[in-house]
C-alpha cells in the first residue's frame, strides 16, 4: 500500500483597502486597526469554484498546457470561508510550487482585484486545518480588541469541517 501523496495549501485572499472607510487614517495608526482594514469581509461573493477556476486560468496563462496539465489534475478546494477569506486547497505534491506560483500571479477574482497569499504548505489536512484555526482565532482576538474590528469579532470561531477523503488508495 502506497499512499498517494498530496499537499494542502492554506491561502488567504486579501482585498483592497476600502478607500471610503471612515477614520482610515486613524485605523492605520495601530497594528490591529490596519489588520481590521485589510481583513474586511469581501464585497463580492467568492465560492470555492471561483477560486479553482481562477487558479486553473492562471496556470493556463502563465505555464500553458504543461502547467495546467501537471498542476490542474488534483486541484480541489477543501475548505473556504468567505468571512475570514481563509481556505485550503489540495494539490499534487510534485506540482505544489507551480500551483503556488500560479496562485501568486492571480490578480483578479471575478473581475475584482485581489491578492491571494499562501500561508502554509502542509502534508496533511490536519496540520493545515490547525494552522487555519490558529490564524482565524489569532485574528479574531486582535480584531476584537479594536473598536473598528468589533463587527468582525467571532467571525472566525466557526468550526472548520473538512471532509476527510480516502487517501489510502493504492
Amino acid at each position: 500500500m502506497v499512499r498517494i501523496k498530496n499537499r494542502y495549501v492554506v491561502f488567504n485572499v486579501i482585498y483592497p483597502i476600502d478607500e471610503t472607510a471612515e477614520s482610515l487614517e486613524a485605523a492605520l495608526k495601530t497594528k490591529s486597526g490596519s489588520l481590521s482594514l485589510i481583513h474586511q469581509p469581501p464585497a463580492i461573493a467568492i465560492t470555492p469554484k471561483v477560486v479553482v477556476q481562477a487558479i486553473r486560468q492562471s496556470l493556463q496563462t502563465n505555464f500553458g498546457d504543461y502547467g495546467n496539465g501537471v498542476g490542474g489534475g488534483v486541484l480541489t478546494v477543501k475548505y473556504f470561508s468567505e468571512k475570514s477569506s481563509l481556505g485550503i486547497i489540495k494539490v499534487s505534491r510534485e506540482s505544489t510550487r507551480l500551483v503556488c506560483a500560479a496562485i501568486m500571479l492571480i490578480t483578479r477574482l471575478q473581475a475584482s482585484p485581489v491578492t491571494i497569499r499562501v500561508l502554509r504548505v502542509s502534508g496533511s489536512v490536519k496540520k493545515a486545518e490547525e494552522m487555519l484555526i490558529k490564524r482565524g482565532k489569532g485574528l479574531s482576538i486582535i480584531l476584537s480588541k479594536n473598536s473598528v474590528g468589533q463587527s468582525l469579532d467571532s467571525l472566525f470561531d466557526q468550526d472548520v469541517h473538512i471532509e476527510k477523503d480516502s487517501d489510502e488508495e493504492q
Partner: peptide, 15 residues
C-alpha cells in the same frame, strides 16, 4: 495589490 508575501515571492524564484 501587487505586493506579495515573502513565501510567494521566493517561490516564484524557485520555479
Amino acid at each position: 495589490l501587487s505586493l506579495r508575501g515573502s513565501f510567494d515571492a521566493v517561490n516564484l524564484l524557485v520555479v
